[in-house]
Amino acid sequence: MKAVIIGGSGATGRELVKQLLQDSRFQEVIVLVRRPYFEKHAKLTEFLVDFENLQQYKDQIQGDVAFSCLGTTLKDAGSKEAQWRVDHDYQLTFASIAKTNDIESFVLLSATGANENSSFFYNKMKGTLENNVRKLGFPQFVILQPGGIERPNSDRAGEKIFIKLLKICNAIGLFKRYQPITTARLAKAMIASYFKFKEKYKVVSLSEIRRISE
Rank of each mutant, 00 (worst) to 15 (best):
T12V: 07
E39F: 08
S118Q: 04
A11K: 01
V31E: 01
T45M: 10
S96Y: 01
I61F: 02
N117Y: 12
D59F: 05
V31T: 05
R25P: 00
K198H: 09
L129C: 01
L166C: 00
K135M: 10
L92V: 09
Q19Y: 02
K18A: 13
H88S: 10
P180H: 07
F175N: 06
D50A: 09
W84S: 05
I181R: 03
F138Y: 07
M125W: 04
G158N: 08
F138N: 03
C69T: 11
L16A: 00
K164H: 02
E46S: 11
A77S: 15
F197W: 10
E130I: 08
L166I: 01
F195S: 15
F106T: 06
G13Y: 02
Y194P: 08
I5T: 00
V142D: 05
F26H: 04
L48H: 12
Y201P: 11
E52G: 15
L136V: 08
E15V: 03
A192E: 15
P36F: 07
I149D: 03
I149N: 04
K167F: 05
E116M: 10
A66V: 10
K200D: 12
I163G: 01
D50I: 05
K176Y: 06
F141G: 02
E208R: 15
I191A: 09
Q62C: 09
T112W: 04
R177T: 13
K176S: 13
F197R: 07
N131R: 11
D102K: 14
S154D: 14
R210D: 10
T112G: 01
K135I: 07
V142T: 13
M1D: 02
Y201V: 14
N153C: 03
Q27T: 11
R211T: 11
S68K: 10
I212Y: 14
A66T: 06
I5N: 00
K124N: 08
L109I: 09
I163E: 01
G7D: 01
E116W: 04
Q60T: 07
F67E: 02
R185M: 09
I97C: 09
I212L: 15
A189H: 14
L44T: 08
N153Y: 10
A3H: 00
Q55K: 12
Q19K: 10
A66I: 08
T182I: 03
N153M: 09
T128Q: 06
R34Y: 07
K80G: 11
S119W: 13
R34G: 08
D76V: 11
I30E: 02
Q56P: 00
E130R: 08
Q22V: 00
I209F: 15
S193M: 12
K164P: 00
R134G: 08
I181M: 06
G10R: 04
K43Q: 13
S205V: 07
K99A: 07
Q27W: 01
S119K: 14
D76T: 12
E81K: 15
S193N: 13
G7L: 01
G10F: 07
N131D: 08
N115S: 09
E104F: 05
F175G: 03
V133M: 08
K43C: 13
K2D: 00
P180M: 10
K167Y: 03
Y37D: 05
S154K: 08
Y122M: 03
E104G: 11
S213Y: 11
L144I: 09
F120N: 14
K202C: 13
R177M: 10
